[in-house]
């Protein structure tokens, strides 16, 4: 396979994968290679089962999202035995880093806009009965964000930021309000734990979410239950 021979550069050790910047088919087409390496702490049988399952399920969901017009990287090639997925290269940063920068620079309007888009994208996912499974602010990227620094806002036209979902390896198809509510709960805690100074941000995400599809109200109701369970959980030392 030509693709495997292209030079690759390790860009990150993610939560479970090693990700490389490389090219696919042509040296001019940048690609991201996501490799799930063997986890030496895990029993080999369990390891193989999980790696294979996640590789295939991530590929399947990315493809499905693509078809539905939900912004995700396009899948180029998958080799589940090696635990490898080649996909479209997204040039941008995680929403986590983008938010940090925006908050630090007081770019309030852009923050609001981003939160709204975030809510809408998650809504579209859930409307189509797809559950992300690991919806943290590290797993949402922002493409085409306005550059900060010297030229920020001066001569550059304001590019419209696009929210792109990545890392669907723990995702699944589900019609259950519970699963969708847990997605929101995970996202909420990711927000609160990394941007504690901006606790109202998440409310904007929820507002946009709630206004975006018919089933959203029921999911929101369920979210209240999931939160409540969370608070009740610390019962024993």
């Amino acid at each position: 396979m030509a693709a495997t021979e292209a030079p690759r550069e390790l860009i990150k050790q993610g939560a479970e994968a090693l990700v490389y910047k490389t090219t696919y088919l042509l040296p001019t087409i940048p690609a991201l290679l996501k490799h799930r390496p063997r986890k030496p702490y895990r029993h080999p049988t369990l390891d193989l089962r999980l790696t294979k399952h996640r590789c295939l399920s991530e590929t399947r969901l990315l493809t499905r999202c693509r078809g539905l017009g939900i912004p995700v990287p396009a899948v180029y090639f998958v080799d589940e035995a090696r635990g490898e997925i080649y996909m479209e290269w997204i040039s941008g940063r995680s929403i986590r880093e983008v938010l940090d920068a925006m908050i630090a620079e007081g770019r309030k309007e852009e923050v609001n806009d981003l939160m709204k888009k975030m809510g809408q994208v998650v809504a579209k996912l859930h409307q189509n009965d797809i559950v992300h499974g690991d919806l943290t602010t590290s797993n949402v990227m922002v493409r085409g964000e306005r550059k900060s620094g010297l030229l920020a806002g001066a001569t550059m036209e304001k590019v419209d930021a696009e929210v792109v979902l990545i890392d669907l390896g723990l995702g699944m198809m589900s019609t259950q309000e519970e699963d969708k509510a847990v997605d929101l709960y995970v996202l909420e805690r990711a927000f609160l734990s990394t941007h504690p100074q901006a606790e109202d941000l998440f409310q904007d995400v929820l507002t946009a979410y709630e206004g975006s599809f018919k089933g959203a109200k029921a999911v929101m109701k369920r979210l209240a239950d999931v939160r409540m369970r969370g608070r009740k959980r610390s019962m024993l030392g």
Binding site: R189, S193, P196, V226, M235, L236, G237
Partner: peptide, 28 residues
């Protein structure tokens, strides 16, 4: 422990809970 399963990290003078068991604790 018997009653708790939490993944915690420190930020801004709080021990913040990043992840936890959604039902029973692992010790339980």
């Amino acid at each position: 422990s018997g009653g708790n399963t939490q993944v915690i990290a420190y930020a801004a003078q709080r021990y913040r809970i990043f992840g936890e068991a959604l039902d029973i604790a692992v010790g339980n």
